[in-house]
Design a protein around this nucleic acid. Structure first.
Length: 506
RNA sequence: GCUCCGAUAGUGUAGCACGGCCAAUCAUGCAGGACUCUCACUCCUGCGACUGGGGUUCAAAUCCCCAUCGGAGCACCA
């Protein structure tokens, strides 16, 4: 039987990176085993539906290179792939469950349930829930005649359908990552399977769809582990084969305790979403990795290693290499802490191997934004000079803007440390020496400068640092003579004259 | 509170199913150094961990028990 896995998000907001990782692991597992990866939209809760969320999910997966074999957009033999379009299917199946005595109608109002809970609490019951202790005392098809049940339903009375949890059993969940997880049914409650609005709950819809879509492995977040026993019971009640489970460890916030949340991103200033997300209600924008300058390869690579470790010590993976190396039994059990530094490191690694042309494209955009026209040759040259010192492609501007616009101020700290009486004169004399050079090349400039320094018994740093300050405005950047050669004779001379004038005046 | 899950350096982790090769891996981070006009890059060196307590054993990071700490779940949400 061929492997079939699914990613089944709810369109209630932007996909969180934990969700993206779940999708990624499903995808890797499917590809590795030559199986299929299905994208199913779980939109059974109309009240929580958020416009644009489904689109966001699709766009995220597409950005990451995670392409579903079957989905709303692509279609497939097991559609529809949106749960809201599968209502009738759930209806049919729940009827079977009632027929076999595994589920029952319940007419209790929310107030009545609340009252029941309060009663249990005063009796000292630790977990006041709708279960075998109380179901015989509630308003449901277990306690009333078939006639009364059909009368109530016929009269249009609101009702839900609940799972009848068997009383004294031990349910075993087989999980690739965690081994066997055993839970006694006395701790489970009679979960609602069908809501009074005519929609199934997650539990029912999920099991029915997974079975109908022939899902072989359920790979999902750890937050589902507690409800896995219920799901096993449901498969059994239907008489279906139970898929293999794999509950992925949580992604933890960078510092402190708890799982990573949207608020952490806002608070600490880093993205927790793959793409920018504009909340349709508030208009607030949450930052995404893509817009923050991460390349998709780095993002995927980073995510893959968040909770999974390959057999080798390899850290840099292409998607194909990930598929090759991935296996569920090497997914860790403990929560994986989100480490932004590591994410940056990945991005830097990918930036290094990125073709110059791609970086040039980014930088051309930057220049356009700043209304600076420039020759393609020059742009390329600049990108080559600074590309080693950036973490994000968008950093190019920070590291290269001075090639296109003269500094408008000079780093005060550097002035204080390096600029001595007489420095201005030296710079002007060096400049004069340069002007007589037959060629304005880095090597010639360097030779000429060294000659001057030696002849006047100066220290290298004394002159060089101030030259850099005059040309760049700060103590940073690539080789000074490369910068000057790139800038050209006229521009360099202008900048030195201006710098001496401005700094000596202070 | 109850149920379930987890715990190796600042962080991510390897090692744990089959106990000795573990004076514990790799990377990141940090510190120092080399290079150098500067910032980066690169290279070198260093820092730093088996949550605690019992037990089993000749031998425990690894197996067992307890404790502690942390997490998740406990809806007509998914």
């Amino acid at each position: 039987m061929s492997v079939r896995v699914r990613f089944a998000p709810s369109p209630t907001g932007p996909l969180h990176i934990g969700g993206v990782r779940t999708a990624l692991y499903n995808y890797l597992f499917a590809r590795k085993s030559g199986g299929s990866f299905i994208l199913r939209i779980e939109d059974t809760d109309q009240s929580r539906y958020v416009k644009g969320a489904e689109q966001y999910i699709t766009e995220t997966l597409s950005w990451c290179g995670i392409s579903p074999d079957e989905s709303v957009g692509r279609g497939g033999d097991y559609g529809p792939y949106r749960q809201s379009e599968r209502k009738h299917i759930y209806r049919n199946h729940i009827t079977k469950l009632i027929g076999s005595g595994n589920a029952y109608y319940a007419f209790d109002t929310p107030a009545e349930i609340e009252e029941m809970r309060n009663r249990l609490i005063t009796k000292g019951v630790a977990t006041p829930q709708y279960d075998f202790h109380v179901r015989e005392n509630m308003k449901n098809s277990l306690t009333m005649s078939a006639k009364e049940v059909s009368q109530r339903i016929g009269a249009g009375e609101h009702y839900v359908i609940r799972m009848l949890i068997p009383e004294n059993e031990v349910v075993t969940v087989h999980d690739i990552i965690r081994g066997e997880v055993k839970v006694h049914t006395s701790h489970l409650d009679d979960k609602v399977l069908f809501k009074s609005d005519g929609m199934p709950t997650y539990h029912l819809a999920n099991i029915v769809d997974d079975h109908l879509m022939k899902i072989t492995h359920v790979i999902r977040g750890e937050e589902w582990l507690p409800s896995a026993p219920l799901h096993v019971l449901l498969y059994k009640a239907f008489g279906w084969d139970i898929p293999v489970f794999a509950h992925l460890p949580l992604i933890l916030k960078p510092e402190g305790n708890g799982k990573l949340s949207k608020r952490d991103g806002d608070r600490l200033g880093f993205p927790v979403f793959p793409l920018d997300w504009k909340d349709p209600a508030t208009g607030k924008v949450s930052a995404g990795f893509r817009e923050s300058g991460y390349c998709k390869e780095a993002f995927v690579n980073f995510l893959a290693l968040l909770g999974w470790h390959p057999e080798s010590e390899q850290e840099l993976f292409t998607m194909d290499e990930l598929i090759e190396a991935f296996s569920l039994d090497r997914v860790g059990k403990a929560g994986a802490r989100f480490d932004l530094e590591k994410a940056k490191w990945f991005n830097q690694q990918y930036l290094k191997s990125m073709p110059t042309e791609q970086l040039v494209e980014v930088f051309e955009e930057n220049l356009k934004e700043h209304n600076i026209p420039a020759e393609p040759e020059l742009i390329k040259r600049v990108v080559e000079l600074v590309r080693d010192r950036i973490v994000f492609a968008v950093d190019l501007w920070d590291h290269a803007h001075y090639f296109f616009q003269p500094p408008d101020d000079y780093d005060a700290k550097v002035i204080k440390k390096r600029w001595k009486p007489g420095t201005g004169d030296h710079l002007l004399l060096v400049k004069t020496a340069w002007e007589t050079l037959p060629q304005f090349s880095a090597s010639a400039l360097k030779q000429s400068t060294i000659d001057y320094i030696e002849k006047n018994m100066l220290h290298t740093g004394q002159v060089m640092n101030c030259l850099r300050l005059a040309v760049v405005g700060a103590a940073k950047g690539p080789d000074l003579f490369d910068i000057i050669e790139t800038l050209g004779k006229e521009e360099t001379i202008q900048r030195i004259k201006k710098a001496v004038l401005v700094i000596e005046e202070k």
